[in-house]
């Protein structure tokens, strides 16, 4: 039960961050990418604030805690090289992000605003993830890096 309440509260902190930062608003995200239009640099400040906080916080966490409070161990550092799947997947993601203006981190909190368009986007993302699983299961396993 403590784990569930803790995850709920951390989700609220995340959602408030997305809300306060303006990243809940697809128009704002799209204007960051529109260098030739009405450019809004806000997204860079979100990434900067988040990254610096996480850089410092992760160092404190990994330096002071032997294990997470509710779990037996920390996840291993991201392994593997930079391959075509990673870069290709990220490129497809970026094209979708540029077309819709939403990403999952922005759209999930935006569901709380009860706008039908957000639900359409999230349903499409879920369909895409399910399709991605199906495609991946038909591909040969990637060669070890």
């Amino acid at each position: 039960m403590k784990r569930i309440v803790s995850a709920l509260l951390i989700g609220i902190v995340f959602g408030l961050g997305i809300t306060v930062s303006g990243m809940i608003n697809p128009a704002k995200v799209l204007n960051f990418f529109d260098l030739a239009g009405n450019w809004d640099p806000s997204l860079a400040f979100v990434m900067g604030g988040g990254l610096v906080t996480a850089l410092i916080g992760y160092r404190l966490v990994f330096g002071r805690l032997k294990t997470p409070v509710f779990a037996p161990a920390f996840p291993p550092s991201p392994a593997g090289g930079i391959d075509a799947r990673l870069v290709g997947g990220a490129a497809v993601f970026g094209i979708g992000w540029g077309i819709a203006g939403f990403c999952p981190g922005g759209a999930i909190p935006a569901l709380g605003l009860l706008n039908a368009q957000t639900f359409i986007f999230v349903a499409a993302v879920i369909a895409g993830i399910v399709a991605g699983r199906a495609i991946k299961s038909r591909l040969p396993a990637p060669a070890p890096a």
């Binding site: 490129a91 993601f93 979708g96 999952p104 986007f121 879920i126 895409g128």
Partner: peptide
Amino acid sequence: LGGLLVGIGVHFG
């Protein structure tokens, strides 16, 4: 369209 691409892309990326 954007949602589908985001979903497929995050899965591979």
